[in-house]
Write a protein that binds this DNA or RNA. Sequence first.
DNA 1: AACCATGATGGAATCGTTTCCATGGAGAAG
DNA 2: CTTCTCCATGGAAACGATTCCATCATGGTT
Lengths: 356, 356
Amino acid sequence: MEKRATIKDVAEAAGVGVATVSRVLSGGSASPRTRERVLAVAAQLDYRPSALGRNLRQRRTGGMGLLVPDLTDTFYAQFAEGVLACARSAGEPVVLGSTGGDPEQEAELIGMLLEQSVDRLIAVPSGDEDTWAPAVRAGMTVVFADRLPARPFSEDDDPAAAAVNDLMLLDGLAAPPPAAHRPPELPSVLADDRAGIRTAVRYLRGLGHRRIAFLGGPGHDRRVAAFREAVGAPVDEELVVFGTGSRDSAYAAASGLFQSRPDLSAVVAGGNVLGEAAVLAARELDLRVPRDVSLVMYDDVPWAELCSPPLTVIAQPGRDMGYRAAELVLRSGGRRARSVVLPTELIIRGSCGPHR
Amino acid sequence: MEKRATIKDVAEAAGVGVATVSRVLSGGSASPRTRERVLAVAAQLDYRPSALGRNLRQRRTGGMGLLVPDLTDTFYAQFAEGVLACARSAGEPVVLGSTGGDPEQEAELIGMLLEQSVDRLIAVPSGDEDTWAPAVRAGMTVVFADRLPARPFSEDDDPAAAAVNDLMLLDGLAAPPPAAHRPPELPSVLADDRAGIRTAVRYLRGLGHRRIAFLGGPGHDRRVAAFREAVGAPVDEELVVFGTGSRDSAYAAASGLFQSRPDLSAVVAGGNVLGEAAVLAARELDLRVPRDVSLVMYDDVPWAELCSPPLTVIAQPGRDMGYRAAELVLRSGGRRARSVVLPTELIIRGSCGPHR
DNA sequence: AACCATGATGGAATCGTTTCCATGGAGAAG
DNA sequence: CTTCTCCATGGAAACGATTCCATCATGGTT
């Protein structure tokens, strides 16, 4: 339990002032002669500047926060790995929180990060914009990933319209809404849900499917909107069902869907937890995939190949998304960073067949 | 971007000294009268003490570090969720690092945590005891989970014997080795690998299997030792193969095993990544599970049920292990905490059949 | 020769908290 | 009434870094 050398120790041992040591170590100006000596002494004392002192002085903690709903959702695990990879190569710490998809826990974690003076945050948001207001007000650099926070409810605001609006924004087709009082859009890293869903729906259509269901979870607003758009015409509302995020509720939703609508012939699962539930529920009800029902799952995960038949999926680059998000939040020391939309890919395996 | 109120602001507004404010907020003694006023003012100013100042003063960062090899390994994701759950309920931050199973990266991350003055660390170690020496020397409270760091190589030290030794320790059957110069054992949270493997091997034996292979990964020393012990007699060394931790190498190991020893009738996979590889390799080689080969996988993960047939697994309570580890590292503010060994459970599904 | 610009250097202030210590007042015991 | 004790209280010193600013030396210019 030896105590670490401080900058003062180095200064004394090198016969210089602490200011000089600090400058040498952080790349300020110094004569080659002193620089060399300071460096030598620092190495010899095994000196490592304490982040504590620095953080206090600069009134900010280095590194970044990372908030995801659930690490056991493989997509978020991949995403987190991407963030960690970038942070590691930058030598920055990552403070992780898992929200369980609960806005309240999310708010608490934001509070905790504020207390820690973590001023950079990557988040897969669960709460709405009100939840995020404190973070933004405190001047945090926030990068959202995978989804955007919902708008808080207000009577002149229609959630469905809002989601469609987000889609339009992605395409640059529409100007931002009359954002007079709304906070400026924060940078984000999203997958191209619209194209992904559209491709999947078209693929199923091409196989002859007409009654296609969507199995969604929290935060899948944009995906549902894209689904509605891709299906076109009035969507059969019974074919759009939601789970709350837990595996149990996903299973219940899937099972309920299959039972209430035996006439459906294809399902698009909005995420891998939903996909898992769909496979399980189908098996439980003796529905054969893809003979009785075709299945496309959002997210490519290692176990998609293990199923039999292996699952046809809409792959989004989880790891890349994480890496990009971390880059954004680090680099954007300047100002507003541009948002990023990454492409998805339909990977055809064996869980979709022709409509019978 | 408002700036936060400091303790000084509160002191002035309440007409008391900063020391008093600090005492009130951290539960020291104060007259009810002032306590009330300070609390009121603090609430009104929305004051939250900055962790920065406190950390510097106490020369330590709160919270804990968490080092795992790979979050996309579902077991580690479950484990991390457990740690996060405990940390969240304690209001403590968690600094996460993913080592990729690489001792070098692990060492770097330890260095980073040291720099941050994080003095509590939960780790699934990849490096050996030498890798961990700096952390211990610096006085960190370290809790290992899932496995223990390997002993560094020395000629009078036999790794196999060491692993067996660890097993004995678990049972409390043997006194610790002559640890004269060895650091004292650190607290840890482990699953009862020995019993788990033993149960699985006996189960396979009971089904008539005689040529049982073990498919291991890094850090599975204790599991291999348990396997050897459970199989008894001289083990056919060709039936014990290892991957390096990546999915590719796991697949290669599994595939190689199946090809080189078509006579084997059962496989115990030492972890879920290995199990995944085994399923994939078996399918690729047209081996039917469980007709041609029976499979037991260490780790219960949601997708084990999705396989067809669903996988028979040795479940270890990943989430609980994480929660317990976090409790240990937090509560053991005192001194050496006792290690914990949690039970495993053989969950019989459909991947094992009688030997033909 | 006097002066100025430049660059290296160290002292000291600062960040926000906790904690040590001295002070002062009130109540109890003599 | 005096003295002793105890407790609430506030001032000030840490903690370890960064950074402002004044100082000093050096070398070039007029």
